[in-house]
Design a protein around this nucleic acid. Sequence first.
DNA 1: TTGTAAGCGTTATCAC
DNA 2: GTGATAACGCTTACAA
Lengths: 340, 340
Amino acid sequence: MGKKTTIYDIAKKLNITAATVSRALNDNPRVSQATKELVVKTAAEMNYEQNRLALALKSGKSMNVGVIVPYINRNFFSTIIRGIEEELYPMGYHVIICQTHDEAKREKETVQNLLNAQVDGILMSLATDSEGEEHFKQVLKKNVPLIFFDRKKNVVGASSVCIDDFLGGFEATQHLIEQGCKRIAHLALNRSLDVYKNRFEGYRKALKKNGLEFNEQYIIELESDFEAGKEAAEKLMKLDPPPDAIFSATDHGALGAIKYIKSKGVKIPDQVCVVGFSNEPFTQFMEQSISSVDQSPLEMGKKAARVFLEQLEQKGKEKIVKEVVLTPKLEIRQSSLRNI
Amino acid sequence: MGKKTTIYDIAKKLNITAATVSRALNDNPRVSQATKELVVKTAAEMNYEQNRLALALKSGKSMNVGVIVPYINRNFFSTIIRGIEEELYPMGYHVIICQTHDEAKREKETVQNLLNAQVDGILMSLATDSEGEEHFKQVLKKNVPLIFFDRKKNVVGASSVCIDDFLGGFEATQHLIEQGCKRIAHLALNRSLDVYKNRFEGYRKALKKNGLEFNEQYIIELESDFEAGKEAAEKLMKLDPPPDAIFSATDHGALGAIKYIKSKGVKIPDQVCVVGFSNEPFTQFMEQSISSVDQSPLEMGKKAARVFLEQLEQKGKEKIVKEVVLTPKLEIRQSSLRNI
DNA sequence: TTGTAAGCGTTATCAC
DNA sequence: GTGATAACGCTTACAA
């Protein structure tokens, strides 16, 4: 009934041995055409299906990879996961997903769990407060490829796929300057993460290059959500003089800021230009669309998967670490485009 | 180096047998406190980690569940997955995700793959063109719990977690009628899927109940995307008389319709009221927010996971099939709220 | 309290 | 071309 048929069942039925059945099913050349056909036919009749678990135990390859992200339902991450899945599915791999809830503790735990589950690789994005690298070292010591995407950490032996956040921050700011903005504020996120730090540094670089003064008051560090963006904008607009542009390290921050600013009757982009980061779908849906830096998450996921596959091939040989850097693309929309 | 330590390694080191090590690690009462401590300590020193694969093969439980959706990066689905993961993580289960790309062929293939991988359960949402139920029967025959969420199929033995789409469609339409709308159009999706069929039926029921005429011309069947919504609105607005309200079975359809209608200078909600379905995040972000029917995907995912867990407990006993129906919640926003 | 041995479902290495 | 057997790492009767 609920019993699953094994190669032994087939063997017994045909009065041959399990080894032969296995060979026949794997199209081994050293088995006669006749038995091969017979076995295949019988297997089908008996509804036989290979037990990947047994195969995994035997071969040492589970054909599973673990993917760890802060939250699965953030469009950026789910799109990366989609990319990973689409690249790995044809190769017979399954994708196990885990969330850290952006907590270091969960991150460690999850890495451990995945190792126990014998995944063939781990692709992940750091938790904001990620600390230590002992758990990453564990992964590498077990010879399991470790690939960071987006939020990476420099761990010897680990690979990474990111965009050039510095460039993204630079171009966004440069664009604002070209619109005539002189007092550009920045909504930053936790700068212990490279991605956010780099966006910030790119912003600074653009200011410097254009001879604009860096004003500490114009920097607000916030959480990634909508409400935080509103509050930040409130603080900023009370300054004298208030900024005439905002470059937000996240789209949700930009959205919150825009909502607040508009509610005060201040015109966008005429009085304040705004650029976000991530190119979340909603940025283009808005009646007044929001400029944003695209991170090509689908490509990022696919690339990360490809790096994983490459690492596998080098198993045994000298491990080659890859550091892929994708190019961000600034999408200029209504929130920052002045008629000049 | 890359070698993983097994209980045999520990046993050898301590001059005891693997069985004892296993018992010690599992806190079996029939092993002396002394050895227990020694084993645990040594295991830690040797960086031992349990191989879940071996355990899985032995026990017949992989501690993995498979989740199948059309696309992972659709907010509705990724949020369901989040719910599933959060409910199952504490129980030690891992979630394997697969996409069908909304294709029947991939659906069958994927179900098969997951069975081979020996998942302990399958939670899924149908592909639009899903056909046959042989693959679902296979799952049940293997005694693997099968739980549909959202897009379900009535298969004997399978459970389901859905919202009451009929009610959702009914309430959305009723609301439009209460706003004074008389000629209500409906953007439908492929009605071979229950969810869309039910939304449509709910719409019809509301018309009927209020004595409004059902007009075939006001029904447009489309794909789920933005562009399709635009085209549909274009067709509708050319009718004489054009509709004074649109109930769309998807938010993207509603968005496209709104964009088109506004581009023609027609006022929303004054001349045309619009209600969508799914309560996608962007519906509330819009400057003119969009009314929509919430499906509580997080809750749906969690509930599906709980149904799975319940099914496990009943293993062996008579299988109890659950059909959970969640209540939709109409979020009334600016796109359909008139000042009356 | 601990050891022995079988078994989960495969595949690989020998033989014959 | 096919069969026997060991092995992957773990748990669990059954013995001792």
